[in-house]
């Protein structure tokens, strides 16, 4: 057990280090996130000026929502991506069949890789926009110091849920000739249903309720709400529980999908 944990930690650390070699590109990306946040925050401010308190957020919370969601965007891979790009090249080269037979668990390997990546990107592409937003553009930092660890935990769970969805999409590559199209479509769905573009409370009633129950809500909307301290005490645990629930369900589905994929490779030779 301890050995396994050590192994996955090593894999994650390797991915973290690999991504940290693209330092300038990551930093430029963080600047881009900040520019987008400035633009989008202005549009939100205009909306909240017309409708104060819309969706249960005050104007300052709405602006903060934009900055936090931009800080999460790349880390939680709201568009898709992350390990998917690497997996894609392995599908193209045909190495994927070999990967299934490695002694390391296929799903665990890629989860560890993705967590390492997300860790580095949260640091830079998350940290820079948050700092810029808080220092110059009126984003509101949490009042309670306890919120920070809860937010980090929520962001971690967001990455795991996002991984669960992306893993299932990538697995479709075992059956589809080319999974790129499906990946693009799920990326669109993810951007919209995660609350990346607009808080889900602003959706028309029915659609909003559905969107809040789907796994994508756990990717952006929930960590943002944790950061904004929308709920207190045990209710926060409810939010985290929702994320954990979807994380487990999706991981389980990934497991089943992986078994089917392996069987297919065994029967048809890839």
């Amino acid at each position: 057990m301890r050995q396994a944990v050590g192994l996955y930690l090593t894999i994650a650390r390797g991915a973290f280090r690999r991504y940290s070699t693209y330092r300038m590109a990551t930093f430029s990306g963080a600047v881009t996130n900040s520019v987008f946040a400035v633009i989008l925050a202005a549009t939100f401010l205009a909306l909240w000026r017309a409708r104060p308190g819309l969706g249960g957020y005050d104007a300052r919370a709405a602006v903060t929502y934009i900055w936090v969601s931009q800080a999460l965007l790349v880390s939680v891979a709201a568009w898709g991506g992350g390990f998917q790009d690497e997996l894609q090249t392995r599908f193209r080269s045909g190495d994927i069949a070999v990967d299934l037979y490695r002694p390391v668990d296929f799903q665990g390997w890629w989860l560890a890789t993705d967590l390492g990546r997300a860790g580095f990107q949260l640091l830079v592409r998350g940290g820079v926009p948050l700092a810029v937003g808080a220092l110059w553009f009126g984003a509101r930092l949490p009042r309670s110091p306890l919120t920070w660890p809860l937010f980090l935990l929520s962001a971690l769970l967001a990455v795991v849920v996002s991984f669960g969805v992306r893993f299932l999409v990538s697995l479709s590559g075992f059956w589809l000739h080319d999974a790129e199209g499906l990946r693009a479509l799920t990326g669109v769905a993810s951007m919209f249903l995660s609350g990346m573009l607009l808080p889900l409370t602003l959706f028309p009633a029915g659609a909003g309720a559905v969107a809040r129950a789907l796994p994508w809500a756990a990717i952006v909307q929930l960590p943002c709400d944790v950061f904004l301290e929308r709920r207190h005490g045990l209710a926060v645990l409810g939010e985290l529980g929702f994320q954990l629930g979807w994380a487990l369900v999706l991981f389980g589905l990934g497991r089943v999908g992986l078994r089917l994929a392996t069987r297919k490779v065994v029967v048809q030779g890839g």
Binding site: L176, H177, E180, G181, A184, L185, G187, V188, M191
Partner: peptide, 15 residues
């Protein structure tokens, strides 16, 4: 890559 092209075009339009 025809199949993919149709899906990707649809996705672009949605994006």
């Amino acid at each position: 890559y025809r199949t993919s092209f149709v899906l990707l075009a649809a996705a672009s339009l949605l994006v």
